[in-house]
Amino acid sequence: MHGNEVLGRELILKLADYLCDEYMKSNGNIRELIHQTRIHLMASMNPDGWQLATDTGASDYLTGRTNNNSVDLNRNFPDLDRIMFSHEENHIDHNNHLLQDITSIKEPLQPETRAVIRLIMQIPFVLSANLHGGDLVANYPYDESKSGKLTGEYSSSPDDETFRHLALQYSLYHADMADPKRKNCGDVDSAQFAKQGGITNGAKWYSLQGGMQDFNYLSSNDFEITLELGCDKYPNDDVLENEWKRNKNALINFIWQSHIGVKGIVYDSVTKLGIPNAVIHVKNVTKNIQKDIQHDITSVHDGDYFRLLTPGQYKITAYRDGYLPHTRLVTVINRPFTQAQRVDFALKPISLPPYIRIQPDNFINSKPDELFSTAQKWENWRNGNQEPLALE
């Protein structure tokens, strides 16, 4: 995203090469990873900035950071955080896929930003990371503070526990990101990162608006973190091999994290066809926590879904208009280098026979729980448990 922060670009290119080589060498772990995972690699989101930084010999800390229109792409995404924070304050349940709620933007979207948003909307990503330079830390949402404070305010997302896990799964597998004895990058925050396991909440470090990390989380099903890969934004080519060795295990392990939690198909119990856009809601009931995770995801094209979760016990509910909700109690146990636990949901359609009479005004004015009760009674009748109804 920042053209002068070049290590991520080189690591992505090397990662592609490594995955292909190790697959051909019959590396069991890499073969399993490739067979089970759709991996998308973008070496550069800002080629113009990279070209400028390269042509000028990486002469300073900022040249090439922005795109050809002098815009910082990591401040150019629609600000969905403020919408989410407003929903939280007003107890509005709408907590994901918030792009549709945007009514205006402060700055025009850049061509690169538009292209990446189109990619995010078209492909149902589960997990991602954007790679930067200038410090050594794994950064996780939210990047924007809820109060507007510029630094020092921890801004937790509903999936804070899962995001902390994801960040640690990079930092702990990196050669020294989580090592308290490692060299820091010269500022007070950097000196503290390693003592925190090599991770930080974004807004706790410094608040930013329009970042890609939070946009992914609030506009789609994707969980994204930001990786700061080192103090030097434009390192010399003679250190690239060592940097690959420092990051290789962390990169591979991070990709494996797309398989934590649960996955499955939401389908129609009658037609057996997958149901897209079904809502997946999760309640954490581990050790009587009884806490709803106020961030829902949705099933995609063929009814498939992936829900990243840390180990624990959860009540997971799938629902969509026209169907009865279905809740399952699931114990999540994340085993390394294996697929996520399969949890499917067969939703029963709500269908009323033609000889049931419905008075439109009463039906429209019914409360949601009353409608659900009616639907449940009809379902009971279909199963032979009670007489048919006449709704007046």
Rank of each mutant, 00 (worst) to 15 (best):
Q213E: 09
G210Q: 13
V270M: 12
I275F: 13
K195V: 13
K181H: 14
G230S: 08
Y267I: 07
G210M: 08
R182K: 06
F215R: 00
N242G: 15
G202M: 03
K263D: 12
G202L: 03
N184S: 07
C231D: 04
W205P: 05
D189C: 05
Y217R: 10
R246D: 03
D189A: 14
P235E: 04
N184I: 03
D189W: 10
A194S: 12
G274P: 02
A203N: 10
N277H: 14
W256Y: 08
E241K: 14
T226H: 10
S207K: 11
Q257E: 01
H259W: 06
E224C: 11
S207Q: 10
G261V: 01
F254V: 01
E224R: 05
Y234D: 02
P180K: 11
F223G: 15
L227I: 13
D187A: 04
G211V: 10
P276Q: 03
T271C: 05
G198E: 12
S258H: 11
R182E: 01
K272P: 04
N201Y: 05
D189V: 08
D268W: 00
G264Q: 09
S269H: 11
A203V: 00
D232N: 11
D238P: 07
G274K: 13
N247C: 00
G198R: 15
I260W: 00
V266N: 10
M212N: 14
S207R: 09
F215N: 01
S269W: 09
P180M: 05
K183H: 10
D222W: 00
S258R: 11
D232K: 11
V239W: 05
C231H: 08
S269I: 01
N201A: 05
W244T: 10
G264R: 09
L227R: 07
N236G: 15
N221A: 04
N236M: 15
W256D: 07
M212K: 14
I199H: 11
D232G: 02
G210S: 05
L208F: 13
Y206M: 08
G274S: 04
I252H: 10
L229P: 00
Y206P: 10
N247D: 01
L251I: 01
L208R: 08
C185G: 06
N253Q: 10
Y267N: 03
V239A: 12
P180G: 10
L240P: 03
V188A: 11
A191E: 08
K245W: 09
K181Q: 14
F215L: 01
T271M: 04
D237T: 13
